[in-house]
Amino acid sequence: MTAMALRLSDRLRGFFDAADGAEGELAADPLLDVVHQYPEEAAWFIKVVMFFGSISGVIISIPCGVFLTMYWAPCGQCNRPLRYWILVHCVLQLLQAPVRLVFFLRLCHVQSLNNNIQECVRQLTHSAAWRTSKVVSIITYGWFILGIVWLLNSTYCKPCPGLYRLSLAVIFAAVARLLMTLIVFYHSFPPRFQGQGLPPKPRGANQELIDSMPLIVYSQEMRGEETSCAVCLSDFDRDAVLRRLPCGHSFHRGCIDKWLKRNKVCPLCLQDIEVQSPKTSKVKKAI
């Protein structure tokens, strides 16, 4: 009996631990990026979201369960299957609750021990539980949208007037939770991360702007200029096609175009390519 319980708890723990083979997809998780840069803040954010996620799921499911057991039959006469919608929604929420709670407790534990938060988040995000939870989340969102559509199309239901109101309340609760997540996010992270991470500043150039920079063909006679590309660090071959920026610096066309799409400044002197000021560039060169 004890052996069985032990095996079960082992299996359960394995569900929340990273699979050994998961190492390869390490860089793929954006959550880890955030944790890498701002471990303390990220841990707090994840904890709050996980805690309220699991609690709110349970709290919403209780009145829904009570209502459905009382009025299941009369609700069947309404023109949209909202009773099924609420039932499935609650089941999905309840499925998520334990995973979120374990995540929350593990983070609390790691923080109290002053251990590596990043490693803990890495393990959890690579676990089967996390992946399952992700799938359930996607299903939940799809189901949520279906619910809105059904709700908008439902007419007044005489045998079961409460169903409409309950569905509305559940949807409002879900929207409120989403808003709360966003608010917590904005309060958790320093402004520089928000500025740089989420809504990316329009730092890159469009193709039109990039194409307006002249192309030149490299030849050894071009004296006093770069002989290699600062982006790929390779020497310019003869007849290589280079792009010259207003500051006078040249790079391989392919190399610099890729960079300018991300950030429209010269990699070498950091001058904005849109600011055409030959005077300042001369001054900079003189220095």
């Binding site: 840069q37 701002y38 471990p39 938060i117 740089q196 982006v231 190399c255 960079w259």
Partner: peptide
């Protein structure tokens, strides 16, 4: 954690 706050490793990076 050893995390570093240095602008060139974040938004001031250049290739």
């Amino acid at each position: 954690t050893g995390a570093i706050c240095l602008d060139i490793l974040k938004d001031k990076w250049s290739p």
